[in-house]
Design a protein around this nucleic acid. Structure first.
Lengths: 335, 335
DNA sequence: CGACTTTATCGAACCGGTTCGATCATCATC
DNA sequence: GATGATGATCGAACCGGTTCGATAAAGTCG
């Protein structure tokens, strides 16, 4: 590998001039610039990014930290970020915490050790310790998906209250009154907001929520399955189930199928969030989806703004909340 | 941030001794070792990985390059690799080429610039130029999924011929003769092997393959949909469709549903590779799945062996080919 | 006790860049 | 023609580590 000193020797200039020629070509005379460029391409010189990062104290890499890169929701966001970053000569390092807070912390510290230029984080936890940790990160960053109380950073996400409310309203319109809700972990903002959307919409309509109809699905497939089973074995079954996310809703569908219930004839189902291949799942589930492309785009723009604009770090953190979209399926029947 | 010189000053030793104390503690006297450790923890010293990589010429990071990190197949492999790497104090950098060869090349060069210790690559292309590029990579590496002719590296993958043959045999056993095949891009080894498995099994059974029944689905959802449509509008329809991967098979299912065909009553369907939420797709599709956990495990072990064992690079490249597993569903009907 | 090996530690060079202040030639201004 | 501003280039210090050869002290052996 050719180094900057090789180039300097060939071009008969000093090392610092070569460095200057690449970082700000305007400050070098046209003649020497030409000599340096010729020398560089002659030996195939490319600056070592590691050495650059060390000397500059920062790299052109962006950290992307989520709990599950396999989740298509994060996948769309990642793709948007990657494309936008690439256009601005940045490079995205993807990492996966598997939802484990300890590992997330390790990953972030590792990335910071790599002197990343910025960080896009889908927070995996909450609470004072966690907030303190995130607040201690001094790299430009944007949080997304999960709004965590106490973290004073840019945030990009969807209106989860609205998501819950929209589907509840839809079911009410169809004549349902015995509506069950498979909730997520209430310490997560997305989960609690969706639940709040459900509860308040029910209340506005003057419909009482049967406490037996609210079960905890933990946003996971296995817990969702158990929760759905508990709903379905009740003698006084709900006429509709609202899943707080895709995993619990599909788990509920599986449970229905296994018990021999038909959806939507016996029980209606609606869910928040999309899922891959939703179009081949029978019935097509009525859902409210997030605008992942738009979310990804905003995250990317905001993060690169913070990275590239020198006086951006004096700008106060800002929240960007997008409205979700209703996508009708045929999993909800009119009563 | 505390540097190694701070620690040296506090412990009243030279910088080189501090470095030695961390890299090979046995070569430092117990007394000084203790002093150095105390000083280090007093100022919270952690070695800068960037500086280490620069000086050593290599880091403790492993590059993971695939065409779609959202694909659960790659997700399982990634998770296995991450866990195993972490146990050996290595750190996985995930990158996504979106299947684009140019971007893959950029990513790999970037990673090499970062002086990665090793590379796990799911090749996205083929042909002389591509082979030459991959062969030029001098970092320890393991290829997986796609076997590319000419690349002399460790390879880990599944027996794709067998996968195609198993499902074909299954359909033949059920009495099907008019079996259609939605193929993948034939330049990909996985696709051509699966196709070969189909063709040769048909031949062995003495059943002729109707040329109209072999269509190209490109392993993608959209091409698969079109291909399936071409199959389904033929007056002389097949009685069974075999999808060379999950995307084309599910696209075929969608096409069937849209045209009003019932699966398996009108047409049977089988596919290679699993898909998330396959259990809630109606009907449950009969499939042959790869042992992703085992694949990931082998990739991880092999790569870390090549990284850590100093005389591993003299070992010749080796192929690891696993048998896939048959998972019956209810998408194939007996004729 | 002298010769030889071993052990602990150190200084300096190095990895491959960036950056800042200094230098010097050139040119405009009065 | 002295003064000052401007522009191009350079040397040296620096980023934060690793590594190797040198050195001095301690241990081994006949």
């Amino acid at each position: 590998m050719a180094t900057i000193r090789d180039v300097a020797k060939i071009a008969e200039v000093s090392v610092s001039t070569v460095s200057l020629a690449f970082s700000s070509p305007g400050r070098v005379s046209p003649r020497t610039l030409e000599k340096i460029r010729a020398a560089a391409s002659a030996v195939g010189y490319v600056a070592d990014p590691l050495a650059q990062s060390l000397a500059r104290g920062r790299s052109r890499m962006i950290g992307f930290v989520v709990g599950n890169v396999g989740n298509p929701f994060f996948g769309d966001i990642r793709r948007e970020l990657e494309n936008y970053a690439l256009e601005h000569e940045h490079f995205v390092l993807i990492t996966d915490s598997s939802g484990k807070t300890d590992r997330e912390r390790d990953l972030i510290e590792h990335l910071i050790g790599l002197k990343i230029a910025g960080l896009a984080l889908a927070p995996s936890s909450f609470g004072p310790d966690y907030v303190k940790f995130v607040e201690s990160i001094k790299v430009p960053m944007v949080c997304f998906d999960q709004k965590v109380a106490g973290i004073e950073r840019d945030f990009v996400g969807s209106d989860n209250f609205l998501a819950g409310a929209m589907l509840t309203e839809h079911l009410l319109q169809l004549g349902h009154r015995r509506i069950a809700f498979i909730a997520g972990p209430q310490h997560m903002n997305t989960a609690s907001e969706r639940y709040r959307g459900f509860v308040e919409t029910m209340a506005s309509a003057g419909v009482e929520v049967n406490p037996n109809y609210v079960v905890d699905g933990q946003f996971t497939r296995s817990a969702g399955y158990e929760a759905a089973m508990r709903l379905l074995i009740q003698p006084d079954r709900p006429t509709a189930i609202l899943g707080a996310n895709n995993a619990v809703a599909l788990a509920a569908l599986q449970a229905m199928q296994e018990l021999g219930f038909s959806c939507p004839d016996d029980i209606s189902l609606a869910m928040i969030d999309n899922v891959q291949w939703s179009s081949v799942i029978t019935p097509r589930i009525t859902m409210v989806v997030q605008d992942t492309l738009q979310l990804g785009n905003i995250i990317a723009r905001r993060l690169l703004h913070r990275i590239t604009d020198p006086n951006a770090n004096s700008e106060p953190p800002q929240d960007f909340v997008l409205a979700p979209k209703f996508v009708p399926g045929n999993s909800c029947r009119r009563l």
